Computed example of a mutant assay.
Amino acid sequence: MATHAARRQSLVAQNMANADTPGYVPRDLPKFQDVVSTSSAANSMRRSRAGHFEATAPADNFRTLSEPNQTSPNGNAVSLEEEMMKAVNIKLQNDRALAIYKSSLNVLRASLGRV
């Protein structure tokens, strides 16, 4: 979830940086829930690095979406307001992922007796 948030934040930052570029079409990733739920191997194990166990599913099934809503006279379709709203939602997703990570570390520490 944190990796997805980081990649999505990178795309939103690129969109905002190109807000004045003529003909630029904003890009985005699908929501994390959509990526996980539509994954053919959502319930099976997947590897995250090439050196890990063998798996048939690729580690990344992210795809870039183009969402041209309305364009300005120069053909740019970036809406700074929409990109800022996306950035806020991405921060919340990242915070949630970090909270889950910290909670799992606390469970591991407690099981080892190192609270």
Score class of each variant (00 low, 15 high):
residue 93 Q to V: 00
residue 38 T to C: 03
residue 75 G to A: 02
residue 105 L to S: 02
residue 83 E to Q: 15
residue 68 P to M: 11
residue 96 R to T: 08
residue 94 N to D: 14
residue 45 M to S: 10
residue 11 L to D: 01
residue 70 Q to L: 15
residue 41 A to L: 04
residue 106 N to G: 11
residue 62 F to H: 13
residue 10 S to H: 04
residue 95 D to N: 12
residue 19 A to N: 05
residue 62 F to S: 14
residue 114 R to K: 09
residue 76 N to D: 07
residue 99 A to N: 12
residue 38 T to I: 00
residue 36 V to P: 02
residue 68 P to D: 09
residue 106 N to C: 02
residue 11 L to G: 02
residue 77 A to Y: 08
residue 33 Q to K: 08
residue 39 S to G: 09
residue 14 Q to H: 13
residue 68 P to G: 08
residue 13 A to D: 08
residue 49 R to Q: 12
residue 14 Q to Y: 10
residue 57 A to C: 01
residue 107 V to T: 13
residue 7 R to Q: 13
residue 52 H to M: 14
residue 56 T to K: 07
residue 111 S to T: 09
residue 90 I to K: 02
residue 90 I to R: 03
residue 39 S to H: 13
residue 14 Q to R: 10
residue 26 P to G: 00
residue 29 L to F: 07
residue 83 E to L: 08
residue 103 S to T: 06
residue 60 D to N: 11
residue 105 L to F: 05
residue 93 Q to M: 11
residue 11 L to I: 01
residue 60 D to Y: 01
residue 6 A to W: 02
residue 15 N to A: 01
residue 106 N to S: 14
residue 25 V to R: 05
residue 110 A to V: 06
residue 45 M to V: 13
residue 112 L to H: 04
residue 99 A to G: 08
residue 82 E to C: 01
residue 68 P to E: 06
residue 92 L to C: 03
residue 110 A to C: 02
residue 41 A to R: 12
residue 59 A to H: 04
residue 69 N to A: 15
residue 102 K to W: 02
residue 38 T to P: 00
residue 48 S to M: 09
residue 86 K to M: 14
residue 108 L to M: 14
residue 12 V to M: 07
residue 95 D to T: 10
residue 55 A to R: 03
